[in-house]
Design a protein around this nucleic acid. Structure first.
Length: 802
DNA sequence: GCAGCCCTATTACCT
DNA sequence: ACAGGTAATAGGGCTGCG
């Protein structure tokens, strides 16, 4: 039995129970590029039982009571009395260790009932993650282990199995991953009757692309997809990817493949654990043991600029593939392209484009996913699927372990609203030379400055007679100034780490892999720090603290008020402000003075974020249009940046904004709109207009039956369902309004079922285009009459301006 | 029966 | 399924008319 040390790049961690022995399974790649499984048979599941302080003297007795719960299948192996901290306070707990992970839940319930046990903690930390946390093992990083080589094992599709005899430590300086095998895939399904059904409709194409540049397609034989499945499975096993990426694959491709395979009686045997197939797992992702299955749609959700997040739109936005340079087939017509021999080559090209685009998106996003995993400690397939709150929470759980802090349970709480930020009333009109100043990371900075957190919140004011406390304005909550609380420490760590990363980046060429890696890392660190405030105000958070979140916004409001005072005292005119930003007249020397005074008097950093040559406000908050020095138009809040307005209305509004701000001649804008309306009417009547310009996209936020009103998008969704398509919660429904009488909702139709000549152009003019362009032009005295009609209206316009 | 008013439901934005 | 603040549309109930 030869023990040696090896370093392994961690991909994923899971566990198995063999007989009565739990085994930690680590999937990784060793320094020579071998795919390996590391087994650790020594780790045991446990949880903590918090002792009530009144029974500290009877600890032995209570420990005995716990031990007596022991059952043969999974005995209680030990009950150890330990000192830990809970919300910063030292307490005594029992660490209750058992054998089989599944038994933790049962013992937790029984232990909770024992008199003298105040609370049971950390019983819901999954076993594999527990192991990683306790051994400080982070996914997508290199670690050393002392192992014994066990050689290949037919249960695991890896080069060798290594048994861990000692866990070493992370290799901090080795930041680059080994050469990873990445496979993008995309499936096309036969759909002659709308939404495809696995027990009826075959998978007709599976396209794959690998990081070696191989692109392959597996085709059904007409409607028979058995061979396709076999070839796909063989390919995956042969290529043996470490990472599998798809687009919307957790919600569509994998569930479909799984159900279809089941229907066909085929084992979808593609994982690295022989006999185990892909299956649904935490945070809605599909788990593929030994491989990281990443759904790129999860990243797309974080791109607010892209409103309709289809693969082609996202690929276009990221510069991966132009929509104009790829085959576009409406998804509801795929079956037709498959059936028609003349069209089929187009479908094949479409499928190739899809998988190329998918692979391209993966190249952009995987570095960020890798960094998120290596910071939060959650394996990449999980962390990518998890929401921001859970990502931060896993980071906090790791931090808590290092601090000797216990992790609070997630408890059901009633939602309590609280006051947020200040939004100033904008000064209407066009302003010249305006500087936009932003506080840098206002909320995280406030949290650090005032040591805000659940463990530093003072519930008894008398405590502040002896120790220094900070009192939040407006709300009066008190926070101990010392020692640094949990959140403060965590935020300082994140901020310090980010600074160091950015420092490292300076010495690297912008196009080097290391630079890109560090860029992704600093972004991940920033995202986590910025989530801390929202996290504290989230009722689902383990470290929920409404008072803390409330104090943060209160200090934020006070900071804004005082900054405004300082600006005014310097003679800077404040045009607008929202939460942590101020729009003031751009006077270079005064602004420099302002920045200095804010830093001195408020202790927070504020910076010039933007300078507008012109900026236009209506009376509405959160909406403005700015013209930057380089001639760029920023549209903020208006219809032009909203996904739920017809493209035609957005385009015209954007153009109006551009004309007005650049030329300051609103009559030109009026002329432009009038011409555009005329042309539009012609093109709609001729049927040459594109229906896409009239589509209104709205998200279905709940099941159809849960709606109280018959909103247009709900009606359109019902039409889709009647047509055989499936519409799920979270889907975007694209509808148009057709001619006819009655309510708008009664005339809402899925756009795929409408000829452009049937759309109700008057609805679009009256309810979309005119409101959108008047939002800007109204300020200049323009009314709908100036925009509509012919001849006479033109006269009226000139009369108005004479 | 319906115009006009007001309130509510709904969505997506901003920071 | 990280927060609150905000704008805007369409539905739908109600009033009052005649």
């Amino acid at each position: 039995m030869k023990v040696y040390e090896t370093s392994v790049y961690i991909l994923d961690v899971s566990y198995e129970v063999h007989g009565s022995e739990p085994q930690i399974i680590i999937w990784g790649i060793d320094e020579s590029g071998r795919r390996v499984v590391l087994k650790d048979k020594r780790f045991r599941p446990y949880f903590y039982a918090v002792l009530d302080p009144t029974v500290y003297n009877r600890a032995d007795e209570i420990a005995q009571l716990i031990k007596q719960l022991s059952r043969p299948r999974s005995p209680i192996l030990s009950v150890e009395l330990l000192e830990r901290k809970y919300f910063g306070k030292p307490i005594k707990v029992f660490k209750v260790v058992t054998l089989i992970p599944e038994y933790v839940r049962e013992y937790r319930e029984e232990v909770r009932k024992i008199p003298g046990i105040a609370e049971v903690l950390e019983a819901d930390i999954r076993f594999a993650l527990r192991y990683m946390i306790d051994h400080d093992i982070l996914p997508n990083t290199w670690h050393t282990f002392k192992v014994v080589e066990k050689g290949p094992n037919q249960d695991y599709r890896v080069d060798t199995v290594l048994e861990i005899v000692d866990v070493g430590s992370r290799i901090e300086e080795k930041i680059s991953p080994p050469k990873l095998r990445i496979m993008a895939f995309d499936i096309e399904v036969y759909n002659p009757r709308g939404a495809p059904k696995p027990n009826r409709d075959p998978v007709i194409i599976i396209a794959v692309k690998t990081s070696e540049g191989v692109l392959k397609q597996f085709l059904a034989e007409d409607k028979n997809d058995r061979k396709l499945f076999k070839e796909f499975i063989d390919f995956v096993l042969e290529y043996d990817p470490d990472i599998i990426v798809g687009y919307n694959s957790n919600r569509f491709d994998w569930p479909y493949l799984i159900d279809r395979a089941k229907y066909l009686g085929i084992k979808l045997d593609i994982t690295r654990r022989r006999g185990v197939e892909p299956k649904p797992s935490v945070y809605g992702h599909i788990s593929i043991p030994g491989r990281l299955n990443v759904d790129l749609y999860d990243f797309a959700e974080e791109i607010p600029e892209v409103k309709v997040k289809s693969l082609d739109e996202v690929a276009e936005y990221l510069g991966v593939m132009k929509k104009s340079e790829r085959v576009n087939i409406p998804w509801y017509e795929i079956f037709r392209y498959w059936d028609d021999p003349k069209l089929r080559p187009l479908l094949l090209q479409y499928s190739r484009d899809d998988v190329e685009a998918t692979y391209g998106i993966a190249e952009k996003f995987l570095p960020f996913g890798i960094q998120l995993a290596s910071i939060t400690g959650l394996p990449m397939d999980q962390v990518v699927a998890a929401s921001v709150g859970f990502r931060l929470e896993w980071y906090l759980i790791r931090a808590a372990y290092k601090h000797g802090e216990l992790v609070p349970n997630r408890v059901e709480r009633e939602y309590e609203p609280y006051r947020g930020a200040i939004v100033l009333e904008p000064k209407r009109g066009v302003h010249e030379n305006i500087a936009v100043l932003d506080f840098s990371s206002m909320y995280p900075s406030i949290m650090m400055k005032y040591n805000i957190g659940p463990d530093t919140l003072v519930r008894d004011p008398n405590e502040c007679l002896n120790t220094k406390c900070y009192e939040a304005p407006d709300v009066g909550y008190l926070f101990r100034s010392d020692p640094p609380g949990f959140f403060k420490s965590v935020l300082e760590t994140l901020v310090r780490a980010r600074k160091a990363v950015r420092e490292q980046m300076k010495s690297l060429p912008l196009d080097s892999p290391e630079y890109r890696l560090l860029e992704a890392r600093q972004l991940a660190l920033k995202v986590l720090a910025n989530a801390a405030y929202g996290y504290m105000g989230w009722v689902g958070a383990r470290w929920y603290c409404r008072e803390c979140a409330e104090a943060v916004t209160a200090w934020g409001r006070e900071t804004m008020r005082r900054a405004i005072e300082i600006a005014r005292s310097l003679g800077l005119k404040v045009i607008y402000g929202d939460t942590d930003s101020l729009f003031v007249t751009y006077d270079k020397t005064k602004i420099e003075e302002f920045i200095k005074r804010v830093e001195n008097e408020l202790g927070l950093e504020i910076k010039v974020d933007k300078i507008y040559r012109r900026v236009f406000f209506t009376e509405a908050k959160k909406r403005y249009i700015g013209l930057t020095e380089d001639g760029h138009i920023d549209v903020v809040g208006f219809e032009a940046v909203r996904g739920d307005w017809a493209e035609i209305a957005k385009e015209l509004q954007e153009k109006v904004a551009d004309i007005v701000l650049k030329t300051m001649d609103h009559r030109k804008a009026v002329e432009f709109v009038r011409k555009a309306l005329e042309e539009l009417r012609r093109s709609v009547e001729r049927g040459t207009a594109s229906i896409e310009k009239f589509v209104i996209w709205k998200t279905l936020t709940k099941p159809i039956t849960a709606y109280e009103v018959e909103a247009p998008h709900v009606v359109a969704a019902k039409h889709l369902i009647k047509m055989g398509y499936s519409v799920d919660v979270g889907d975007k429904v694209g509808y148009v309004i057709v001619k006819g009488g009655g309510k708008i909702s009664e005339r809402a139709r899925p756009y795929i079922a409408v000829d452009v000549r049937d759309i109700d152009l008057d609805y679009y003019i009256e309810h979309q285009i005119i409101p959108a362009v008047l939002r800007i032009l109204e300020y200049f005295g323009v009314s709908d009459k100036h925009l509509k009609g012919v001849g006479k209206a033109r006269k009226t316009l000139f009369e108005y301006h004479k």
